[in-house]
């Protein structure tokens, strides 16, 4: 979707604010939100792509007013409700800062001993595919002009632009379908495509500079 998450090339956000000796979490609740999001993964059962799409679907007016971990907190509420892990009235209570009475215990909590496994489990997005590569390394390709309303990982700034294939990574889960509900992995070939800065941004860019993107075969066409 053409959302406010897709900011590459936008103007007006100002200078980069660099904080020295920055803590990993600025406030305690940020760490709790992060940890809960990870710990609830097995109960939520949604794909990373779906999760990203939910985040992108936050209306732009709300998005700009929320900090990064506030958006995570909202998504935590949203998915917990969506999966009936908390009811609408329980969620409303929590949002008002009141913990509702919990009903029967219904789940097996992640324990301290499980935490290592939470990270060491490899979640590869590689999938074998039999279809031969449509594009060869060294070939010039065009990123398609497309404006899907659903999830996609082709940023607006690259659409319609010419680039050169510099790597072929084989089959990877296709985000555009893996973000659907229910998800479909529909693995497609993934390439790295190098775009000249002048192609993306015009003659004012340094002719030596470039931007490389990882793009799936359905995003590309022969010019």
């Amino acid at each position: 979707m053409n959302g406010l998450h897709d900011v590459g090339g936008m103007h007006g956000f100002g200078p980069i604010e660099i904080e020295r000796d920055e803590p990993v979490f600025h406030e305690r609740w940020e760490g709790r939100v992060f940890a809960m999001a990870l710990a609830m993964g097995k109960h939520f059962g949604i794909t990373l792509d779906r999760s990203r799409f939910l985040m992108e679907s936050v209306p732009p007016y709300d998005r700009v007013a929320l900090s990064y971990y506030e958006r995570w907190a909202n998504r935590l509420f949203q998915v917990a409700e969506m999966r009936s892990i908390v009811s609408a009235s329980e969620a409303a209570g929590c949002r008002a800062g009141v913990t509702p009475e919990a009903g029967g215990v219904s789940a097996t909590a992640l324990t301290k001993d499980d935490v290592g496994g939470l990270f060491n489990t490899i979640r590869s997005s590689c999938r074998p595919i039999s279809a031969p590569a449509v594009f060869a390394i060294g070939e010039t390709v065009r990123a398609k002009v497309m404006n899907p309303k659903g999830h996609t990982r082709l940023p607006r700034y690259a659409r319609g632009k010419l680039g050169v294939v510099i790597a072929d990574h084989g089959g990877h889960v296709f985000p555009d379908t893996n973000a659907l509900d229910p998800p479909r992995e529909d693995p497609r070939r993934l390439y790295t495509v190098k775009f000249a800065a002048t192609e993306l941004w015009g003659a004012e860019s340094n002719p030596r500079d470039s931007v490389c993107l990882d793009l799936w075969e359905p995003y590309l066409e022969r010019p």
């Binding site: 760490g31 809960m36 710990a39 907190a73 209570g93 929590c94 949002r95 219904s106 301290k112």
Partner: peptide, 27 residues
């Protein structure tokens, strides 16, 4: 937001979805 998150953590903990010490370990 800190209160909202705390309320949700308490509810999920009581219901058995998360354990405080596991969240501590992630952080």
């Amino acid at each position: 937001v800190a209160l909202r998150v705390k309320a949700l953590e308490t509810l999920l903990t009581r219901r058995g979805y998360v354990a405080a010490e596991a969240l501590d370990a992630v952080v």
